[in-house]
């Protein structure tokens, strides 16, 4: 009898790992600290996902339903791991409710934390109600409420999306590119234009990284089909003239200062390391990398290895990641974790 695999985190990566293990009759225990599965796409109320344009509630909701109905997967919501001991093949995890889970191996699919825009006060979040984050706009769309200025509920005539908020910013110790925000912002811009054609959307960028196949559908599509405007500018500050927001900076293509009125400013927030990573690092005795994500040991041999044998990592826990790549990594981690879980079988046979 093989030991179950402990999966920590019920987002796309964790769900995918559980699903992959169940597909080969490998048992797993899925621990989720919130009261429901789904991770960021469900908990933060994302709207339509890149690249499928499926609603998050359908796409990730479907993954949740498949995991919850699977007899090979034991789901424990509202629980966290408090202690983790033993070695590969016979780990013991102590949960927050005091119960213990024996596991052959573990997968950390603990995800990320949205950058808190308050850490860039010069861009107005927290000072002006009409400065919002991409997460809030996702919620405006997914809730069906439409794009409205939080201050007075009016439909904005003009929206600015600022890219790289909390990414590629050495000043505040975020030296990584969060990978997804350019594409997500282009997607959001198109959705705003569809929901409210009278709203003009401007995207302020330093580089556009709608990588791979997203180039055509998102970067071109947003300009060709939805008339979204891209402005190469660094924003110095977001302030207000008393009536509308003022976006101040330099248009680096025209080489002139700009001070443009907007009704709504959207921060394309990046992906911070999970705020719990220090705790997770201590409990699971895994090393974090220099940016604070769970460190990967190897890029080419066994994927998903952490610094502790038998403990693996998948998804945005180890760095900014897309949903589809998180799902792929969940599978990869499942494959690696299964070897350790199965070693129990080998021992028993000998």
């Amino acid at each position: 009898m093989s030991q179950p695999v402990l999966i920590v985190g019920g987002g796309p990566a964790g769900l995918s790992a559980a699903q992959a293990l169940a597909a080969v009759n490998q048992k797993s225990v899925l621990i989720e600290k919130e009261d429901r599965l789904g991770g960021a796409p469900i908990l933060s109320g994302y709207a339509k996902l890149v690249p499928s344009h499926e609603w998050a509630s359908d796409a990730i909701g479907g993954m949740v339903a498949r995991v919850e109905g699977n007899p090979h997967i034991e789901v424990r919501t509202g629980a966290t791991v408090k202690a983790f001991s033993g070695g590969p093949g016979d780990f013991v995890a102590t949960l927050s409710d005091g119960s213990k889970v024996e596991a052959g191996s573990a997968i950390l699919a603990t995800g990320f934390t949205h950058f808190d825009s308050v850490n860039k006060p010069e861009w107005g979040f927290g000072t002006y109600p009409d400065v919002v984050t991409t997460t809030q706009v996702e919620q405006m769309i997914s809730s069906g409420g439409g794009i409205k200025c939080p201050s007075d509920g009016r439909v904005p005539d003009r929206v600015a999306i600022l890219l790289c908020v909390g990414s590629r910013d050495r000043q505040i110790g975020r030296e990584w590119c969060s990978k997804i925000c350019c594409t997500v912002s282009a997607n959001i811009a198109m959705e705003i234009r569809e929901m409210s054609p009278e709203t003009n959307v401007y995207i302020y960028y330093m580089d556009i990284r709608t990588f791979g196949l997203y180039e055509g559908e998102y970067y071109w599509g947003s300009q060709e089909n939805h008339k979204v405007k891209y402005v190469k500018a660094r924003i110095a500050e977001v302030t207000s003239d008393g009536k509308r927001l003022l976006v101040k900076g330099e248009d680096t293509l025209v080489k002139r200062p700009i001070s443009i009125p907007f009704d709504m400013v959207v921060h394309a927030v990046g992906m911070d390391p999970n705020v719990d990573n220090m705790t997770l690092s201590a409990i699971f005795d895994v090393e974090l990398n220099r940016w604070g994500y769970v460190g990967r040991q190897n890029a080419y041999a066994t994927l998903a290895e952490t610094s502790r044998p038998g403990v693996f990592v998948a998804g945005a826990a180890s760095g900014p990641e897309t949903i589809d790549d998180s799902i792929a990594q969940g599978h990869a981690a499942a494959m690696a974790a299964m070897g350790f879980a199965m070693s129990g079988v080998k021992d028993a046979a000998e």
Partner: peptide, 13 residues
């Protein structure tokens, strides 16, 4: 005088 661009003419394109 300020040389800042202070508005966009959205109809222009």
């Amino acid at each position: 005088e300020t040389r800042a661009v202070t508005d966009y003419n959205e109809a222009m394109q």
